[in-house]
Design a protein around this nucleic acid. Structure first.
Lengths: 251, 251
DNA sequence: CGTGTTATTGATAGATTTCAATCAATGTGG
DNA sequence: CCACATTGATTGAAATCTATCAATAACACG
């Protein structure tokens, strides 16, 4: 029975706990942070908690956009496809990420769980009602969308004008800066161990390269002692500043 | 004297007309459309109308983001630079375009007028006050930002995964779809004359290519009788559907 | 331990860039 | 009014970066 549930790609967690949101560990990182404790019950009532198994596509590009999502655990890759299968990963959604901002009637991208992903799901009418009642939430969403736009423009610069080496350095630096202790810059000697829940293929599709180029470039970084690769899912950044310079095209 | 004024790159139009917004021809295309006629005076009071001369950079990446802009005439190119001068044009802002959505304290991109551009300028505190008073405006901004995000993702797919030929076809189709009469698709025989206020170099920087590749690819499209090039600033689309198929990688 | 998946490494090919020359359009000054 | 310079666009030839094709290697998992 347990095994059967595990194998289901998408599980709606049975809960009618009025306090799901209050104890949600994703709250400080997500749009929900603008909702006061008092109003949180209202939010929880509108949300459905879902667990998505690794590899499962829970948003399909072109499908009617019925839901909005908030990631509370795990990481998902967001991507678009061309008819012949070429893929562009447009981003990785981790804890706190709000998904589904498109006002269009259908999703503009697909989303697939990289590991076990937990999401908070809202349907359109309910979110709309929440937005009407909590202007702060709407403000927060605008803020989130604006930041997303800045990130998207940065990615366009990367995809349009950076070399493979610069792209990968940018990616590693961005990942390193996700680390909790890295509000500022890490000194060039300090080791930063970054976790990569995605495959080399996902990284390639994110950076507009091939898996071979990713592999070769990482090997070269290793040879230059800029990084260490303890295993496929982890990379240790040895020289943050040097990588940062490469990332911004200063070498 | 007139010549002297003409030569100034940025001219603040002298006006204290309470009805500037009421008769603004950009209103139906811009965020202002959600403001009722009655409230429009309030909007006009917060805005400063500015004329920007061709070639002038009126937003500088990294500068403190003091203003928001709404384009009411002309076209501007938005771009980011790498230290060594490599440029990525992230978009073209024409009539109705709202600029400055980043919540950050500094601009994430630069903006340069391609032709004579007229903009409506708001400073941060005044726009914030407007947003507090008109929730519909905030809703509209969120809608605009969300749409921008969809466009940005589409552009990432283009930059990361499309060939030069596909990129240029995508660009031409997008331009053709801007034409007022093109709500739906134009039949493959109908001629669409698209206007290009930007140079080949701007197109190259927008599509992540070089000026030479743009030129070669356009020449090839012409040889294949998909387009005509009456002059550098205009292109006639002869076979919309064929170009559309190329754009989506279906050939 | 096979076995299949994922990653690495090598050799070659190809698309686009780079370098270079020419052409066209526009403007300027003598 | 016409040489001349300037800017933008086109076209050609060569170079380069990355992709593709191919073969191992490393790893995870039952």
């Amino acid at each position: 029975m347990t095994a059967m549930i595990r194998s289901r790609p998408l599980v709606i967690d049975a809960h009618r706990d009025r306090n799901v949101c209050l104890h949600c560990q994703a709250r400080p990182f997500s749009v929900c942070s603008v909702i006061s404790d008092a109003d949180l019950e209202r939010l929880g009532a509108a949300a459905v908690t879902v667990t998505v198994q690794p590899g499962h596509t829970f948003i399909q590009e072109g499908d009617p956009a019925e839901h909005f999502f908030n990631v509370t655990a795990g990481t998902a890759k967001l991507f678009k496809l061309l008819p012949d299968g070429r893929r562009q990963v447009t981003g990785f959604a981790a804890i706190g990420y709000f998904l589904g901002l498109a006002v269009s009637s259908s999703y503009a991208f697909s989303a697939e769980a990289l590991d076990t992903v937990r999401i908070c799901r809202f349907n359109r009418p309910k979110l709309r009602a929440l937005l009407d009642d909590f202007p702060a939430l709407e403000k927060k969403l605008l803020e989130v969308a604006s930041n997303e736009l800045v990130v998207a423009q940065e990615q366009m610069l990367l995809l349009g004008r950076k070399t493979a080496r610069e792209r990968l350095a940018s990616f590693l630096i961005a990942r390193a800066n996700l680390l909790p202790h890295c509000a500022g810059h890490a000194p060039d000697g300090a080791k930063e161990r970054i976790h990569l829940p995605m495959t080399r293929s996902d990284i390639a599709d994110y950076l507009g390269l091939t898996i071979e180029t990713i592999s070769r470039t990482l090997s070269r970084f290793k040879a230059e002692q800029l990084i260490e690769i303890p295993n496929n899912a982890e990379i240790v950044v040895l020289k943050h500043e040097t990588l940062d310079n490469i990332a911004t095209g200063m070498t």
